[in-house]
């Protein structure tokens, strides 16, 4: 295949027990791009990331990383193939120090060492002896990104990085994402705050009730606020703003 995407989902169905969370989700992420995955509460964004990661095996459909099937693989193998996960709510190992949070994820010999993460996020070097549970939301988000990076991923799955953070910190986080992309890391970025994500994303998908209801260029969507509202099932005066 000449232009095989880095990540490709085809008709993925996922369930929580009997509840049907993803219905035929298809999407692609190419090397070096940021792709936004948008949608309202409960649309299935987190479920999509968990399914890619191998934390929730899909009931149907295929997931490919560089052409290789990864659906049905356990999460640790997906991670070792180059997928980094920055989960919703950050999921720090709260009782461990910031440094230990990085150590337990480090894969020696990879592109990103802990030292390199400290160079990129000097603040984390200062905080490395502090319990992760005691860090601020912004510090935790940086640590969660650093923790995914020490696995030297080709693709980062990031779930609502702006959640609960002040505007200055959010800007900082988004600048980091743009820099990572410039460094060659592709990103699948989940956000409820559509306009925020569309500022950095080349392409976007919108999920509604487990279905992909929009797939296209991020810029087109960003220009068409009413469309975002309709897609996400919101009245036009209740647009999600950045």
């Amino acid at each position: 295949m000449p232009d095989e995407p880095l990540l490709r989902l085809d008709g993925v169905d996922a369930f929580y027990g009997k509840s049907h969370a993803l219905r035929g989700v298809s999407l692609e992420v190419h090397a070096g791009e940021i792709v936004a995955l948008l949608g309202l509460n409960g649309a299935g964004k987190t479920t999509t990331l968990r399914t890619i990661m191998g934390l929730l095996p899909p009931r149907a459909g295929t997931i490919r990383l560089r052409g290789r099937r990864i659906d049905g693989m356990p999460a640790h193998r997906v991670a070792r193939l180059g997928v980094g996960y920055v989960p919703e709510g950050r999921r720090m190992f709260a009782n461990l120090t910031a440094g230990e949070n990085l150590e337990l994820a480090e894969r020696p010999g990879g592109e990103w060492s802990i030292q390199r993460v400290f160079e990129r996020f000097p603040k984390l070097r200062e905080l490395r002896g502090r319990k992760a549970g005691k860090l601020s939301g912004g510090e935790q988000e940086m640590l969660a990104i650093g923790r995914a990076l020490v696995g030297s991923p080709a693709l980062l799955l990031i779930d609502e990085p702006s959640q609960g953070l002040g505007p200055i910190i959010v800007t900082d986080v988004y600048r980091t994402l743009a820099e990572l992309r410039a460094g060659g890391v592709a990103i699948l970025l989940v956000e409820q705050n559509a306009l925020l994500a569309l500022r950095v994303a080349e392409r976007a998908y919108v999920l509604d009730d487990g279905r992909v209801v929009y797939a296209g260029a991020g810029a087109d969507l960003a220009r068409d606020r009413a469309r975002i509202g309709t897609l996400m099932g919101l009245p036009s005066d209740e647009l999600p703003v950045s």
Binding site: H76, A79, L104, A105, A148
Partner: peptide, 8 residues
Amino acid sequence: DMMAALGT
């Protein structure tokens, strides 16, 4: 689960 997602 998070440990697994980090490659362990």
